[in-house]
Design a protein around this nucleic acid. Sequence first.
RNA 1: CGGGGCGUAGCGCAGUUUGGCAGCGCGCGUGCCUUGGGCGCACGAGGUCGCCGGUUCAAAUCCGGCCGCCCCGACCA
Length: 582
Amino acid sequence: MRLSTLLAPTLREDPNDAEIDSHRLMLRAGLVRKLAGASGIYTLLPLGQRVVAHVEAIIREEMDSIGGQELRLPVVQPAELWEASGRWSVYGEDMWRLHDRHGRAYCLGPTHEEVITDLVAHEIHSWRQLPLLLYQIQTKYRDEVRPRFGLMRAREFIMKDGYSFHASEEDLERTYADVVGAYRRIFSRVGLEYRTVLADPGAIGGSQTHEFMAPADAGEAEIVSCAECDYAADIEEAEVAPRSRSEASVPMAIGRIATPNARTIEEVAEHLSTEPGSIAKLLLVRLLFADGRTECVAVLLAGDATLNENKLLAVAGAISLRPVTVQEAERLHLPLGFLGPVDLPPGIALYADPEVAEGGPWVVGANVEGYHLNNVWGGRDFVPDRVLPLRRAQAGDRCPQCGGRLSAQRGIEVGHVFRLGTKYSCVLGANFLDQEGQTRPMTMGCYGIGVTRTVAAVIEQHHDRDGIIWPASVAPYHAVLLPVGTGSFGSRAQQVAEELSVQLAKRGISAVIDDRDERPGVKFKDADLLGFPVRITLGKALEHESAELRLRKDGIVQMVPLTAVADVVSAQIQEATAVPIA
RNA sequence: CGGGGCGUAGCGCAGUUUGGCAGCGCGCGUGCCUUGGGCGCACGAGGUCGCCGGUUCAAAUCCGGCCGCCCCGACCA
C-alpha cells in the first residue's frame, strides 16, 4: 500500500472537541471521523477499519476455539419481541425506537438477547442439541444520555455478543469458564493490560458477574484491586471490612467543644489539630421508595470514608436518594455542618457503619450550631438502629480475600460476562425436552466485548507524546517503509521500498510505503503519529546497502543489510505478536 | 435533564465588550528553492460569520427564538 493514495488524513493540530488521548489520536492519525451533526456517531476510515478488523479476527479465533459459532442478527427488531421480554418499557430512553410506514414500532438493537432467544426457541427442542454457543460481531445502537470520549461511549458502536444455551446450571458453568478463558486470551493478544473484576449484574439479571477492565485514567469506572492476590472489584461492589483503629482503654467523659465556622470534616480536623479519621460524620439523606414514599435517615461514617449509595439503597430497599435540603434540616432543628449521632430527634433512623458503631473516642457534631462533641463512644453515647457496611471501598483498605492492601484505579469496561439463568428463555419460550421427556427452560449465559471501545482502550494504554504505539497484533500495518532522498538516490530508495514491501508480504508482514512527496521530517512525524510497530528508513544507510530499522515502542534503532531486512522485521513482528496470556 | 463552554475558510483560532471593508496560522493550488524530524520565498483559490426573525442608514458584533457540538453532573446489560 502506498501512503500517497491511502485515505489517512492526519492532523497537525489537536482537534478542539477531543478531550482524551484515544479520541484525540484517533482523529489526528486519521482513523476515524465524526459524522457532522451526529454526536457519538463515527466513520471508521481505512486505518481504523483495519485495526477493528484485526481485533475482530482475534475475537473470532478465540471464540471459535471454544466452539462458538458466528452468526449475524437483525439490527431492526420488532417491539413485540421486547414487549414479550418486558424490556420495551424497562429499557427506556437508551433505546433507539422507530416506526415503519404502517406505524408498527421497532427499535435498533441495543443488544440481542431477545432476538437470539427467539431464534433458539424456534430451532432447538432437545437436550441433544445443547449446549450451544453463538456469537455475533455487529453494530449496536444505544441512544446514550451523553455520548462522550469518541469511540469510548458512542451511540453507534461495534460489539461482540455471545450467547450460550444449556440444559443445566452446571453446563453453563463450563461454558462460562471457557468464555472467561477465551476473553483472557483475546485481551492479552490485543495488547491490553486488564483486570477481571467482580461486578454488579445490573438490570440484565443473574448472579455474580465478571467485568474485564482495562486500567486507564480516562476510564469511566473505578475499581479496587489487590497487589498480592487476584482480587479485584468494581469500587461500588467491593466488600469492605472495618479498619483497625487504636482505642483508648479507658473511655473518658463526653465533652462539648466550640468549633465556630468548622463545618466540613477538613475544617473540624484542622481546628482540633486531629485527623479526619478520628471524626465521625453524620449524613442526612432522604430515601425515595418505589411506592413514592420517602424517609429521612441518618448515616454515620468515619470522617475519611465515603458513603456507598448503592449499598444504602440496597439495604433500605429504596430506589434513589438525595441529601436533605437546607429547609428539611431546619425543620428538624438540625444544623448542617454540626450533625452528630448523639440525641438525634426521634423518627430519624440511625444507620451506622461498623467502624463507628461501637467504641471510640470519636469527635462528632453536637447538633448545635458551632459545637462538636469529643470522647463520644458508640454503644454508650448513642445506639445505632442498624449497623451495616455502608462505606465505599477505597485505596489502602484491606483485601477481603488475602488481607493485602487494595489500590484504586480507573478502568475502561471492555468486556462483561453474565449468567442469565432462565430469565429470557422462560418468557420467550426457549424450552427443551430433557432426557426424562420433561419440558424445561434453557439456562443461558451472555458475553459481551465492546470492540470499538477496546480499540480506544488499546490507544489509551499505548501512546506517547508523538502518537499511537500499536501492539503488532492489531496495528493497521506492521511496518512503514520510508524512502527519503532526492534525485536518483530518491528513486533508488523508492525502488528498494517496493522490493522490500513484496519480500515482507511473502512473510505475512503488511507494510505501507510512504511515497508521498514530503520532506523527511513530515514522514517521520506521521510515522510516529500513526504508530506502526516498525519503521524501515531507506536513506543514508542505502550507501552501505543497509536500511535503518526503528521500533516504535522503544525507539531502538539498528542498521540491517537490505538482504536481511525482511527476515529481521519478520522476526521482530513474530516476537511482538507472541504475547504471554495473562 | 441540570450546570458550564463553544459555533467565523478544510483544521486550529482572533475579531463580538464599544455595530462601520471578514482576518491570522496551518492546510490547499501554482512557481522557485530546500531535502534525515511538521524548510524558505512569491503569487493564488477558498466564507450563507450555525439557522430564523427583529432593531438599525449599517449586524459576525445588539435583541428574541431555535439548532448543533464539547465538558461536568445525573444516568449507564
